[in-house]
Amino acid sequence: MAGLEVKVHNLSLKNPVLTASGTFGYGEEFDDFIDVNALGGIIVKATTSRHRDGNPYPRMAETPMGMLNAVGLQNKGVDHFVDYIYPKLLKYNNCVIANVSDSTIEGYVEVAEKLNHLDHIRAIELNISCPNVKEGGMAFGTSCPSAIAVTRAVRKVYDKTLIVKLSPNVTSIAEIAVAVESAGADAISLINTLLGMAIDAEKRRPVLSTITGGLSGPAIKPVALRMVWQVSKAVKIPVIGIGGITTAVDAIEFMLAGASAIQVGTANFIDPTATVKIIAGIEDYMQRHGISDVKDLIGGLMV
């Protein structure tokens, strides 16, 4: 029997497979297809301090082996989350993690404070990397001083596991990782989407209403893998790998590069059962390679 349990800071995950925020709704959208409780955990759609209507349509462009999105953090705000969404998350007995974003440090702090009281939310993932909002979001994650400021401010009000989700749209992601580690992050997840663009040549117009958007899917996997490898060498805190993971082999590559756990994102859109297939595939890989503990894969890259 393969040992699939991993630890991320003080979170015990029954397996290393999580869902990426913004690709898995609040879990219930997937109840018809999979047993959500079979996953290591779920990271639900981002919550901001106030209601956000998101960006105008069109918000999506299909690209080679991936897609651009410009959703813009559409959500009903933290008070709605606490009153109406949180009660529905209680049915999940795996690790439920909230994703927190905003346009001001005060906003991040407000959301984190309100989520701190929710016993069933075991951790928050601080989204300082959303490329689709005019202010805040990615702006916090692309310079060390602002990344430190928002992480430190949230750290003061949030007692449980604090994960910081990094933007790949930087010159040196390892520097940002070291900065948020020094500011009190318990773990780092990466990468959020890569800033990209699509053009409709027939109409001579941008495809997205926001002109630019965030690229996700298998197209970004090599970039994500490189960044996970760089960051995991630079910090002591656990790293969660994200970026185009579609198969168990993808997941294992991220673990070998140094990730303690992984998130499945865009793959959920094409195959809502991708996560459970990845868990089964990891077990199969371990069996084939005679590995009894999945933790042995973490950082196991031989160079």
Partner: peptide
């Protein structure tokens, strides 16, 4: 008919006002 990714309410891409 809007451009859609997931078709099940997870991605929030196909919105109409």
């Amino acid at each position: 008919e809007n451009t859609m990714a997931c078709g099940m309410g997870a991605c929030l891409c196909c919105v109409v006002e």
